[in-house]
Design a protein around this nucleic acid. Sequence first.
DNA 1: TTTCTTGCAAAAGCTTTGCACACCG
DNA 2: CGGTGTGCAAAGCTTTTGCAAGAAA
Lengths: 143, 143
Amino acid sequence: MAPLKKSFSDYLAQKGLKTTRQREIILDEFLRCPSHLSTEELYLRLRKKHPSIGYATVYRTLKLFAESGIAEERHFGDGQTRYESSTSEEHHDHLVCTACGAILEFEDPRIEQLQDEVARTHGFKISRHRLELYGLCAKCSET
Amino acid sequence: MAPLKKSFSDYLAQKGLKTTRQREIILDEFLRCPSHLSTEELYLRLRKKHPSIGYATVYRTLKLFAESGIAEERHFGDGQTRYESSTSEEHHDHLVCTACGAILEFEDPRIEQLQDEVARTHGFKISRHRLELYGLCAKCSET
DNA sequence: TTTCTTGCAAAAGCTTTGCACACCG
DNA sequence: CGGTGTGCAAAGCTTTTGCAAGAAA
């Protein structure tokens, strides 16, 4: 089984929750889709194949993904919550194009290291961070 | 006049907008308050001295502050928009305590420099960024 | 059977908008 | 005056919740 799927089903078992048809469907679709989908986008995709699925179920299930650690919530400033599947390996940050909405991921250990240093200076114990760079992507800045 | 006040009144003049009693009151209070206030918090404070002021006016005025460049919108993940007055000088980032909600500001030019470098690598032209470190502050991690 | 889930609709938060009146320039 | 701004209430959006029926263990 894919590691994230196993992770999730372990989480359910451990919490005494149930594996349901909907949760399987939603997880499959979630993993198949581009990252950073909003709940609504995912819901709309799901509806095409599974018209009976409920809006609330998608919301609840995505929150469950986040709790279980297989996905992370993101807020990019439009009013919507977006979700990204966890690689469980390295964390990554985002470049967001303010013109076309493109989202690129990057990772830079040097930045992470400096963050740790800053946190230490202030006596903070960091559990997570968020770094987003907003601007124009290569395409959009051409014009 | 305080620089931000002047900035704002210039913006109003340039856009053909009007200086009103409410805008003055809200700006004064905004500048006097701790940073990172949510619209509601500011509204509640204003109400004490000016009970007739409307919720919508506070919302509209804060948006106006943001447009004029004298304030910036922040989203820290609770559903509320918070505003911070612009120093117009250096940008700063945030350390957010997930236990007590404390927000510390910091700034590290080395991190900024690395961000620029990352952006360049991807062909991005950065206009702004957001860096938040979440964890426990010194006090809360003692226990 | 017992407990957890679902789908629906209603409710809840935060934010925006329509409108009539008031105010600024 | 003419166009903006205000306050109120209503509407909008996204997200959450209550509940009866349905499904998993």
